[in-house]
Computed example of a mutant assay.
Amino acid sequence: MSPPQKGLILEVGCGRGRTNEYLGVAAARIIQMDSSAAMHSLSPREECLAQLHCDCRSIPFANSQPSGVVGFLVDPFMGLGFLSEAYRILKPNGVLILTTPAYEWGRAIRGEGDPTDSELSNAIL
């Protein structure tokens, strides 16, 4: 899947920003968004048009604004509230591109420790 060739791209949970590196989108089209002020202060970071400090379940965009919404390793904040917001703000025929971490990695970053073998088996089933 590739990002749209025109229009704004909103990168949710941006951290340092990866949309240019991973998808080749020009900095002048990227708006980085993260709910963590600490993530916005990470250095070095990708250049972008603007940065937003807000929750992904309440994105300060009018309806049908960006051509694309992207997020890399978004598992920690995914939910129906975010998906609803992404749908609301995307232009018609807009694109949503998300990647999620491996189960084990996602668990570790949430502070739940390493999963047991039985927990892994249950998660896979």
Rank of each mutant, 00 (worst) to 15 (best):
S64M: 11
I124A: 15
P115D: 00
A37M: 11
Q32H: 14
E47N: 09
T116V: 08
S43G: 07
L80A: 10
F77T: 11
M39W: 00
L90V: 01
P101V: 08
R107E: 04
P60C: 11
N63P: 06
S64A: 15
N93K: 14
L23R: 05
K6E: 13
Y22R: 15
I59Y: 10
A62W: 00
N122P: 00
P44R: 04
I30A: 02
V70S: 04
T116Y: 09
G113P: 01
S67T: 14
I109M: 14
S35E: 09
D117P: 15
E119N: 03
C48K: 11
L125E: 11
A28D: 14
H40F: 06
Q65Y: 15
L10D: 04
S36C: 07
E119C: 00
S64G: 12
R29M: 03
N20A: 12
P76Q: 10
W105G: 00
G79M: 09
S58Y: 00
I31Y: 07
E85R: 07
C48I: 01
L96Q: 04
S121A: 15
L42S: 05
G15A: 07
G15S: 01
G106Q: 10
C14S: 15
P92S: 05
N122I: 12
E21Q: 09
A108E: 11
G81P: 06
I9T: 13
R29P: 01
E119M: 05
K6N: 12
L125V: 13
E112G: 00
A26W: 01
Q65R: 12
H53S: 10
G13C: 08
